[in-house]
Design a protein around this nucleic acid. Sequence first.
DNA 1: CCAGTAATTATTCAAGCGTATAATTATTTT
DNA 2: AAAATAATTATACGCTTGAATAATTACTGG
Lengths: 216, 216
Amino acid sequence: MSSPPRRKFRREPASQRKDDLIAATLQVISESGVRAATVRTIAERAEVTQGLIRHYFSSKEDLIAAAYEHHMTQMTDAVTTAEHVTEGTARDRLAGFVMASLSPPVVNPGWVALWSGFLNEALHDADLNKIHQRTYHHFRDQLEALIAAALREADLPATPERLRQLAIASNGVIDGLWLEGGALPQEFATGELAKIGLDSVAALTGLDLHRKATDI
Amino acid sequence: MSSPPRRKFRREPASQRKDDLIAATLQVISESGVRAATVRTIAERAEVTQGLIRHYFSSKEDLIAAAYEHHMTQMTDAVTTAEHVTEGTARDRLAGFVMASLSPPVVNPGWVALWSGFLNEALHDADLNKIHQRTYHHFRDQLEALIAAALREADLPATPERLRQLAIASNGVIDGLWLEGGALPQEFATGELAKIGLDSVAALTGLDLHRKATDI
DNA sequence: CCAGTAATTATTCAAGCGTATAATTATTTT
DNA sequence: AAAATAATTATACGCTTGAATAATTACTGG
């Protein structure tokens, strides 16, 4: 009649625990999809018991939203802080932005799984929809600013309307290629998507994105 | 102690019933996401009892796969059989293909919900993954054939490699814009996405897709 | 080093899940 | 019109789900 000993545990700072639970959520969804993201599976991945989730998040939905926010921030940051995106000529920064968006670790089946799972939820959940809307705009606005700077730099003026269309189109081709590369990794050779993406944004904007500025 | 009367029903041809169950599955997922697609919810939508699903499909997973296949076929067909895509010059057919891909009913939140939900499942399910791969290729191959014909028609020869890249890029921008239009419908004016898509494919391929061939 | 606190585990609950099987009834066959 | 058939409903089973609550234990401030 001996009951198993109560499990040992450590008390972690709240922010650390929350981050761990968010990380566990992202791992589960990226590996097994949204349907697998149950409180028990997530808790197991985080090596805690399920009750703890409710101690830090008011509901599972709340945790999912936090994980969504975290993932989209991480993904945008992975692009905007990548090499060649933070310095150099505007043209080089734009090229770096496109390259980073279409190379590992941004192109990655797990991240596509996260993105598709969250999007599917966002389409019928107002809270998640807001996150989607906000992060979409944030990414596109960054891209539009880079395009605007590169065009100005090349003395190719563009009206606000045309700038908007270029940003939407460039964002579209980046998104589409990113998605295809993550969903069908074996389909594309190393660097192929990045090259196609760079060529495409160049063709759309009329900019030459290949030669480094210093080579001119 | 009177038990409620047993519910009346009609016997339908097997193919009709299967189609109804598939249609109900698509309705549920498009309205409420993959997580809402339970056998009971689907059966209720199809106005039958849940046991019937197992009479026609060996498992819920089997029904989901059938619904996926059905939806992707329907979506591709909606594009490839649209007005201006089946006849006219190659350039007009290509333009019609792009326009149809980026206009209602193809651009539609419900269809994005279906697409994202199925993709999320496909990323960790071998059977669904095959459907994804096959339907992706089918769509892209159709697009590549149209681009090839339009380039030939305009005396702009392209190597197979360049043709592949143009198809990937064009497919990417169409997918990306389609997705954004379906996920954020209020974001774009009527016809805006179709215009941007047409401009983009024109810029990518070097073709003028706006003037009708007869106007030359 | 002890008392207080709250982070964490453990347990419980009602509802929902996919599936299996038995009972019924609409339709077809003879 | 009766009998056979199979489409459909009804019921049940074991498991999982998100959430609520109770019991413990690691840590902190005195």
